[in-house]
Amino acid sequence: MIILTYIGVTILTFLVMEGITWLTHKFVMHGFLWYLHEDHHQPKYQGVFEKNDAFFLIFALPSMMLMYFGVTPQVNALLFIGLGIMFYGMAYFLIHDVLIHQRFKWFNNVKNPYLVGLRKAHKVHHKHLGKEHGECFGMLYVPKKYFNI
């Protein structure tokens, strides 16, 4: 029974991360940490990495700390919260960096209506080069209007 609870904690954390991502993207990345996120909104990336990639570390560190303290001195719920954040980070990497921005050419010809809708919504987000007037700050949940269903 406890394993089902831990699986539930992991799934719930993954789902809650979408809201945290939306809030962080809108109020932190397009707010006081815009100087790290700004290069991500420029038409051409300069080099392999962007300053925006620092957010990988900003989000990975709490996940790693939670997983560490989730096994020390014995397994507890913190491990599964950390895993939920890690799984969300993996999904974010695959959706945002691989599928949407195609920093890796793994999914070039995606036809799935949901994934195409995610790409459309993100393109709308990037039509604004500045930090103001943004829209579509989430990653996995976007408004229905972007889907051809």
Rank of each mutant, 00 (worst) to 15 (best):
G82E: 05
L83H: 02
G84P: 01
G84H: 00
I85M: 11
F87A: 10
G89M: 09
G89F: 00
M90W: 02
A91E: 05
A91S: 14
A91M: 12
Y92N: 11
F93L: 09
I95F: 10
H96E: 14
H96L: 06
I100K: 02
H101Q: 13
R103C: 07
R103F: 10
R103V: 09
F104Q: 12
F104C: 10
F107P: 07
N108F: 06
N108R: 11
V110K: 07
V110D: 08
K111Y: 01
N112W: 00
N112V: 00
P113Y: 06
P113T: 05
Y114K: 05
Y114G: 07
Y114A: 10
L115K: 14
V116K: 10
V116M: 04
L118W: 12
R119P: 02
R119V: 13
K120W: 04
K120A: 07
K120R: 15
K120D: 07
H122P: 12
H122R: 04
K123L: 14
K123H: 14
V124L: 09
H125G: 08
H126K: 05
K127T: 13
K127R: 11
L129R: 15
L129V: 13
L129F: 14
L129N: 15
G130M: 07
K131H: 06
E132G: 10
E132V: 02
H133Y: 08
